[in-house]
Design a protein around this nucleic acid. Sequence first.
DNA 1: TGTCTGTGGGGCGAAAGTAA
DNA 2: TTACTTTCGCCCCACAGACA
Length: 369
Amino acid sequence: MRTEEIAAINPNTKTAPVFRSRADAELTAKIYRNVPVLIEDNASSIGNPWGVSFARLFDMSNDSHLFQTASQLKAEGFNRDETDWIKGETRFAPLYEAKMGDFYDHRASGYGARGDERGNRVLPETTEEEHLDTSFEPEPFYWVAQKEVVDRLRQVSWNRRWLFGFKNVTAPTNQRTFICNIFPKWGVGNSMPLLLPLEKRAEGKEHCLIANLSSLPFDYVARQKAGGINLNYFYVKQFPAFSPDFYTEPRLAFITPRVLELTYTSHSLAPFARDLGHDGPPFAWDEDRRALLRADLDAFYARAYGLTRDELRYILDPADVKGPDYPSETFRVLKEKEIRQHGEYRTRRLVLEAWDRMEANGEFTAMGM
DNA sequence: TGTCTGTGGGGCGAAAGTAA
DNA sequence: TTACTTTCGCCCCACAGACA
């Protein structure tokens, strides 16, 4: 790999990722020829067009004295008020944890079925019936004073009524590597750092950055580069992300309704929906439809990153292009899980179908892609 | 100059769930 | 019953700035 290619892939650290294969190295270099990194240090404001700032809102160890469990709050005379606990003027908000969310779903799992048992690691998943209930919210294990949440968010200059963060603990061999989601303005632990786009000129386009970071081609690059199990800031800064200028009117018209429908599935995210200009009720949870909407966005970003159809096929499954013995693997765990669940690698079929549809009906062309 | 505090990065060990 | 996968909880370390 040439010096300029390494400099484009990791302009801040000037380091080269360890690739599994030549195809991965070449494809990653190609993507970085087309797309800048999220944040280039030492390039003033030009290097950070979204004005992204990171924040660890609450540290699960250092701030643990601020957290209260449901039984502690109850014993202190607090009363439940929907997701919160209140006593007089004092209000405690949920303390969100990384493991409770998934792409476009802040209600993926919770402590509801576990009661007082904190346990750790994998939480019971939210059922389809719960997902269908637009008033259902995931149960946290801890709550934290809302005043503390408000103060800390003010310190990082975030004034929106929703938050966006990503899972800090991950691995290139997991089903997905960079997992992120929008969630209500609650407290959140350090395993889910907040990613805050603060740039005024990018206001109203933040959901596009979120769609970009939630896409499969983005994740392909993330897993080429992430070494350990902690997705530290220096990795995230150097992932390839389109700048706000990329999002023209036709592209916004494609992305906005999809992100809105995928995300706004319960009342707690009404503020996010309002920011996108939607005044209606939450969208009904529909597993099959969600898969289609996400496939559309994955195909959109594959095209945007400048991939050919064969390169997209490679990202979805190297064996499909290079044969079964090729040393690289991309989304093996995802593929195997879907084959167990659906009897087919559904994501691959849906993403390629979306690509072919948009190619044939002129949607790509209409968006200047 | 030394200590304290806060921020940020690295990684070991192991629990819970799932597959074989 | 055993092996494997996924995912933290927890602890360690480096460094910068404030302050005595």
